[in-house]
Amino acid sequence: MKIRQVTKMLLTKDIKTLIYTYLYTFAILMVLPFLINLLTGTLKYFSFTSILKNMPFGTVFSIYLIVISSISYESFKMFIQNGISRRTFFIGKLSTLMILILIGDFINLLFGYLIQIPLVGYERFNLFMGSYAGFFHNVFASVLFNYLMSGLLLICLVTFVMAFGSAMSLLSKRLQRLMVIGIPIIGIILIFIATSLWHSMAYKGTWMLNLFKLVVGFNAGNQLNPFPLISFLLVFSIVFAAIARFFFSKKQLKRE
C-alpha cells in the first residue's frame, strides 16, 4: 500500500522539523539567557528552575502542529506528480499527525510529571491536571486519562486546522491573503460579541450555559467529570476530520 510510503515520507520530514523546533525553543529560552547572564556577569540572577518551570513545550508543540497541519498544497503537488491519490495523501497526512501527537503528547506529559511536578512543584501543568486529575483516585488511571485527553485536544486542534487550511488552499492566492487578514478581525469581533453575550447570560442559566456545563462535566459535586469532555472532543475531531477529508478531495493543481 502506498499509504505506508506516504506516511513514512511525511513523518521523516515532520519529525526532523519537530526536533529542530524543540532545539530552537530550548536554545532561545534556556541557553541564550544563560549566555547573556554569563557574559554580563549576572549569573546569580539566572534561575534554571524558574525557566524550566515556564518552558512552554506544550505551547510550542501546539504551534508546531498548527503550522504543519495547515500546509498541504506543496505536498499535494509532489504526491499527485508521483501518482498518489488525494485519499491516500489525506490518510497519510492524518496518520502522520496522529503519530506526531502520540510522541509530542508523551514528551509533554513526561516534562510535566518528571520535571515540572518534582523539580518545581508545578502540579497544574495542563488542562487535565488543572481541572480533572482529582476525579481519579488511581495514579495510573489519572496518567492514562491525562494522556488521552491531552492527545484528544491536540487531535481536535489538528483536524480543525486541517479542515480550515485545506479549505483555504482551494482559494486563489489573492483570496487567501484576504482571508488571512479578514478572519482574525472577524474572529476578534465574534469573541467580543460572544463574551459580552456570555456576561449578560452567564447568570441566567441559559441553555448555552447548561450545554457548556454538560460538556465540561460539571456536576453538583465540586469535581469535574472528564468523560463528557472526552466524548465531545472525540466527536469534534471526527466531524472536522470529515470536513478536512472533503476539502482534500477537492484539491487541484493550480494554474501558475
Partner: peptide, 14 residues
Amino acid sequence: LGQMFLMSEVNTYP
C-alpha cells in the same frame, strides 16, 4: 495513477 507519469512545465517538486 501510479501507471502514469506526466512530465510538465509546472514545478511540482519542492
